[in-house]
Design a protein around this nucleic acid. Structure first.
Lengths: 340, 340
DNA sequence: CTTGCATTGAGGTGCGCACCTCAGTTATTC
DNA sequence: GAATAACTGAGGTGCGCACCTCAATGCAAG
């Protein structure tokens, strides 16, 4: 039979009360008592029954995803995954919800974060660009013992905040490798399209991409990043113009998570099936475009996995446990038509 | 406050005892009572507290992975992942272990399965080739209420047994696509190497591979599968011979999970860096070979994810819960040097 | 030696549910 | 209408732990 706290008390030669004090870091324990309890834990292999802990604490968890407000298809996937997880976690005393915040407004984000009380929320998964204000607001959250996970964004690691997401330099390099191999040694230009190059993610992807191309496919000429600023009209204007001015474009790399807008704009001028096209994130659009060969490969990070991982990490931190690192690494997926 | 069973009894206008009978499928409940309880569950949104259930039942789970005995590097990864999970699940009243069985001996496997008692084991994750004997033994396990998961193998779905693993037809097609694209339109032969073509997995991968090549890259000539039978000496003999007799081989597809033996044998005769090489499964060897360009791409299924998924499914089935399908789908990963 | 404080033990309560017993009630059957 | 079977409720116990109170000890400083 698995040893209980009572067995532990006996083995350590102390009372249940002292065992309880040691296990839960309560005050008024002599070093000697603490040592003998910890030694006994090792000796008899005591492990707290998490079900009993959960029941006795009768504590519930409330986690919030703070996400950008956007029409982005990938974000819609994320919202959907959060809603699914919310339903699935209802049983586990874990409340999950999300809010949408205008992403450009660092001040607004910081203000929102400041307004979060630890009476209300135990953890926040934050998807927002870095800025001094946000960084400061995060530090305040941590002070209030609200766990923070940097979610899919923000590579400049804050100390004491976990990160869930991929290495965007590697993701960009992967895209570069695929474009290099798929263009089969042809010379020509590569069009690179982003929503914005302000964010750390975009910068890192571009950097990884350029590094790979320069190193292994130097005969490919990568054009400066075109920024759509999530503006469909702007994209519809600028992208065909660039295509007109560069008739030797043989590949397109869309490095932001919204692939639909730029690729629809490009399709107005060229047949995407004749170009090598690599985009990011699995969405209804990229899936369909892989299906009919408009896109050759998609670099993706599974939103469902990301959301679950963030919650697992916040739970672990709330329980003062260490999350299981191997499980929480988000893979850089390469999606082809064949392995959807 | 979250409603408890007591609240539920009140809402349904019955006693706690009747609520208990309904919740746990005990006999002696009138249809009327059952209906009013179920209706009240919906109405007040009652959800059992899983921690309390677990504590009251005070039940532990014992799951066993039945794996082939082999020196295969991928299997070693699997063993390692099982051991890791074993340690991680100790806290959760869940015992996990594994045994190794000679894979060719269907009779021995069946005999082993027959010897498993439900007093001893709650669930089995079985990685074994199909055979009537095994199929029968699995049916007996299920009769004894031992949950069975077909693990990474055995695509002919048994009814009532879950499957954890990838679609091997799609995995083969993905390999075909990568070889087709990476060879860049060159004509030539493709060498296909397997440990054995007896297993359903190999057959399906080969089928998916051929289908893709024929459909999209018909100028590539795929040679018949070379079978190594896990025999290093045999591989060292036969593979160089085939390479000598087919000087126009431009690509190699290793479709079994052991890539080291065949590729080391091939490297004795050709420089793998000059060929397009696609293999399966991430192992120390394939990782290293991706790193120095001996392998161009690896098709993989994450062993850690697979092991965790199998255990989650067995737990869910033991609790008569439905597993969360979206979480349990194993992805066909495409690994390049860049996204390791 | 006394005061004060840190430490310890004994004991109780409750978390939400599963599982059990037993007496009592309501349908069914002949 | 009586015997039988099917149902129902009241109540208790225990799962392993967190959290609380209170009395009793130890130990140090003054």
């Amino acid at each position: 039979m698995r040893p209980t706290a009572k067995d532990l008390a006996e083995a350590a030669g102390v009372s249940l009360a002292t065992v309880d004090r040691v296990l839960n870091d309560r005050p008024n324990v002599s070093k000697k008592a603490a040592r003998s309890v910890n030694e006994a834990i090792e000796r008899i292999g005591f492990i707290r029954n998490p079900a009993a802990v959960s029941l006795a604490r009768n504590k519930s968890y409330r986690f919030r995803f703070v996400l950008p407000r956007s029409g982005d298809l990938y974000l819609r996937e994320l919202f959907q995954r959060v809603r699914e997880l919310k339903a699935a976690l209802k049983a586990d005393l874990t409340e999950v919800d999300y809010v949408q915040i205008p992403i450009d407004d660092a001040h607004g984000i910081a203000k929102y974060l400041r307004g979060i009380h630890d009476k209300e929320i135990d953890g926040v998964a934050l998807m927002a660009p870095e800025s001094p204000q946000v960084r400061d607001a995060v530090a305040r959250l941590l002070e209030r013992n609200i766990k923070v996970v940097q979610f899919l964004s923000g590579q400049e690691k804050l100390p004491a905040a976990d990160f869930v997401g991929v290495d965007n330099f590697a993701a960009g390099a992967t895209a570069g490798k695929l474009i290099g191999r798929f263009t089969c040694g042809a010379t020509g230009k590569v069009m690179v399209i982003a929503e914005t190059m302000q964010s750390m993610d975009s910068i890192q992807r571009r950097h990884g991409f350029d590094t790979k191309i320069n190193e292994q496919f130097p005969y490919l000429q990568c054009l400066p990043s075109i920024e759509t600023h999530a503006d469909e009209a702007r994209a519809g204007q600028i992208i065909p113009r660039v295509l007109d001015n560069n008739r030797d474009i043989i590949a397109i790399y869309v490095l932001s998570s919204e692939a639909r807008v730029p690729l629809v704009a490009a399709a107005a001028r060229v047949d995407l099936a004749n170009l090598v096209v690599v985009a990011h994130e699995r969405t209804p659009f990229t899936e369909a475009a892989l299906g009919d060969n408009r896109i050759d490969a998609v670099i993706a990070q599974d939103p469902g996995h990301a959301v679950r991982s963030a919650v697992r990490i916040m739970r672990a931190r709330s329980d003062a446990r260490e999350p299981l690192a191997a499980q929480e690494r988000i893979r850089i997926e390469v999606l082809l038509k064949e392995n959807l």
